[in-house]
Design a protein around this nucleic acid. Sequence first.
DNA 1: CATTTGATGTACT
DNA 2: GTACATCAAATGG
Length: 219
Amino acid sequence: MVWATKTVVRIVSGDLSRPGVEVAPLLLGTILTSDIGGRRVSVRVVEVEAYGGPGEDPASHAHHGMTPRNTSMFGPPGTCYIYRSYGIHWCLNVTIGPVGHAAAVLLRAGQVVAGFDVARERRLPPSGRPSLARDLARGPGRLTQALGVTGSLDGSDLLDPGNPLRLTSLDEPATEYLRGPRVGISRAADRPWRFWLPDEPTVSAYREGAVTRREGSER
DNA sequence: CATTTGATGTACT
DNA sequence: GTACATCAAATGG
């Protein structure tokens, strides 16, 4: 089955307070900037995944209600929820509305648009072989590593210009995107709540070859 | 190329 | 103990 479908949207104002996971693609094309360790890195968000609130999305960390880990998911829209993934990586989410609903959007990949050298240094593996520019923030764990993001910023406000980590350019969201099933989950895997920008090599690869590729095949 | 595996924190059964 | 919103190195064709 070919899952990806092309969707054209017109967005007047990017408002994370709007209810529902359909808000997620508003974040595509926004700029995420970190000023951490005295160094600045910015990425253009190219891939996101939406997760619902308690009781409505079995794949969401908020599904069973508030826990010590997911408390920041219950914060106001624009709050970041950062958690440790597989004991190794950090993953960054942005909460969306309505207030207290505990739905969030995982930022899955970005294109580095500033601080290239800093990002490459942070992403240098033990083997010392530098990543391709394309791969610097290609994947949720890589994205946070390139930005220098750790759990210390969990719960902070991404819409606050004074926050070391912030989202900007919300006025000019992408006008066109693709959508398909979420990656790397086993429950509710059929919901097409992953959104990404077309023709972007910095979008993360599919893990399960069976699901889909060739998003251009219909059309 | 594709597929497998090791590393390893935290939440929850 | 088991599962997990992952990644990179190792392995096989």
